[in-house]
């Protein structure tokens, strides 16, 4: 469904992603694991067109998207949930959802606000509040809900569990499984192994901008040395 082939991305002169390749199949949840600064967010941003890769190709449903603008990439059906969340602080919860709303249906279901309030009950109680007044966990839910309003067929989730209380992390995992059950594919970047294990089917490990390992969590458990080399702090 999504395929990155030998991507090279830069920040100014700094070479961050080096010949990075990965793919995500339909209905699959893939976790991208790696330490701080490994290049997880940069990968997401490159897919989303927020950074233009200097070389390499990105295809989505066999259509090249590496030269599209980010709004066009979104219109192809990729929904992006950024690491910093980037809630519109001055807009109410409902208005935040409204920004994400798109009428065309690129994904398996056509989300309505009420569906998302069912998925994230915490948000329902706060629909008229300013986005900026929500807690970190609620903001994370709002970002995901806002992106789902665009009816994507695939989600890019950048460290959704970062800085969130364990109880909320469980809720989040449940919601993400719910989203997956609706038929969406997900590329998830994570440092929280517990969370990643709860939701994902397959993993990639990224280190210094290249993929170093690919396999399932159970395979990974067989290789404590890989674990130690790339993930342990």
């Amino acid at each position: 469904m999504l395929k990155l082939e030998r991507i090279n991305s830069y920040y100014g002169g700094a070479h961050i992603l080096k010949d990075l390749s990965l793919d995500v199949q339909k209905h699959e949840v893939v976790a991208l694991l790696g330490r701080n600064g490994a290049g997880k967010s940069t990968t997401m941003k490159s897919i989303m067109g927020l950074i233009l890769p200097k070389s390499g190709t990105i295809t989505y449903n066999n259509q090249a998207i590496s030269n599209l603008a980010s709004h066009q990439i979104c219109q192809c059906g990729i929904g992006y949930v950024p690491e910093e969340r980037r809630i519109f602080a001055d807009l109410s919860v409902e208005e935040n959802l409204e920004v994400g709303r798109r009428s065309s249906q690129t994904g398996p279901i056509n989300w309505q606000k009420e569906d998302l309030f069912d998925l994230f009950p915490n948000l329902a109680e706060r629909r008229t509040q300013r986005g900026g007044n929500l807690s970190g966990g609620e903001q994370q839910m709002l970002t995901i809900a806002r992106t789902l309003m665009g009816n994507p067929s695939m989600l890019l989730l950048d460290e959704p569990s970062e800085g969130i209380a364990p109880v909320i992390v469980e809720q989040l995992a449940k919601a993400i499984k719910g989203v997956k059950a609706q038929g969406l594919a997900i590329l998830l970047s994570e440092q929280n192994m517990h969370f990643a294990r709860l939701v994902s089917d397959r993993t990639y490990i990224i280190e210094q901008g290249s993929i170093r390992y690919e396999g399932s969590f159970s395979d990974l458990d067989q290789h404590p040395n890989i674990w130690k080399q790339y993930l342990a702090l």
């Binding site: 989303m48 603008a69 980010s70 709004h71 979104c74 992006y80 950024p82 519109f88 994400g100 806002r146």
Partner: peptide, 9 residues
């Protein structure tokens, strides 16, 4: 930029 990432031209 976020608005663009949400599909707005």
């Amino acid at each position: 930029e976020m608005v663009a990432a949400l599909g707005v031209n």
